[in-house]
């Protein structure tokens, strides 16, 4: 097996005395679909936000594609990364946000073409062609010229997914992509993510509360608690036969509530 695309090596994240991520060791293989579940405040989203460089780490080393994310190799040692290094590393990752975070003053098309044109240097025509391809993938071709507030939440999140994909990332990070949606709109977003999961090259890391969905698409499920992985395994192991009492408690609480 080739080297993992994501490695957390004893990573810690703390705000003052409040520890969010505690000496975390964590790996994701290329093409793997990993779901992170766990109670709120367990540091699930922070893992994604660290990878997207939205949140600095306090200790340890994160590797993406074999290279340190928050550090640069300097004189044989590791020094804190500069902006140029972060930009280069960021291009391998795409993120889908809980609150969509679409640019409200740009049309759907412009949301999808802005970064490819400015960052990747695509021509207007190429960026548009790429955007239209992606809009077809998420089933929103006829909405290209609308503004985000003219779309439903589910449609907006599908635009959010397409926008991230437009940068051709190797790893897609989904931060509770359906948590802000009305229940009847969750399905259409999950359908799109399911379609992506069938692509073997794309590595996917998702934080979600949709347990049935996690079970269906994941190669591996990680149960987070207090900033560490309490238990991990295949969906069958975690959902079918959890070993840890804490995992069982969490699952029964979540599944009973559903």
């Amino acid at each position: 097996m080739s080297e993992p695309i994501i490695v957390f090596d004893k990573v810690a994240k703390a705000y003052g005395n409040f520890v969010v991520i505690d000496q975390l060791d964590f790996k994701v293989e290329r093409g793997e679909k990993v779901t992170i579940i766990g109670p709120s405040g367990s540091g699930k989203s922070t893992v994604l936000r660290i990878l997207m460089t939205l949140e600095k780490i306090s200790d340890g080393v994160v590797y993406v594609g074999g290279e340190p994310l928050w550090h640069e190799k300097k004189n044989g040692g590791l020094a804190p990364a500069g902006e140029a290094h972060l930009r280069k590393m960021r291009s391998q990752l795409g993120m889908v946000f809980q609150q969509f975070n679409l640019f409200p003053h740009m049309t759907v098309l412009r949301n999808l073409t802005e970064a490819p044109r400015v960052v990747l240097g695509l021509s207007a025509a190429d960026a548009k062609a790429r955007a239209e391809e992606l809009l077809e993938l998420v089933g929103l071709t006829e909405h290209a010229h609308k503004f985000p507030n003219q779309l439903s939440g589910g449609q907006q999140q599908r635009v959010g997914i397409a926008r991230a994909l437009a940068m051709r990332p190797k790893v897609m990070l989904f931060d509770e992509p359906t948590s802000a949606l009305d229940p009847e709109l969750v399905g259409e977003v999950l359908t799109v993510i399911r379609r992506l999961a069938s692509e073997h090259d794309l590595t996917m890391l998702m934080v979600t509360h949709e347990m049935r969905f996690a079970r269906e698409i994941s190669d591996r499920v990680c149960f987070f608690d207090k900033g560490r992985i309490r238990e991990e395994g295949t969906p069958e192991e975690i959902f079918g036969n959890p070993k840890e009492e804490r995992t069982r408690q969490f699952l029964s609480a979540v599944l009973d509530g559903a």
Partner: peptide
């Protein structure tokens, strides 16, 4: 302008100046 707008721009790797002129100021 919401923090999420800055985060989305960063996730898309938009340069800070472009983010300011094309994402933050128009809003």
């Amino acid at each position: 302008v919401e923090r999420g707008q800055h985060e989305a721009a960063k996730a898309l790797d938009l340069p800070p100046r472009r983010t300011f002129t094309h994402v933050v100021l128009p809003q």
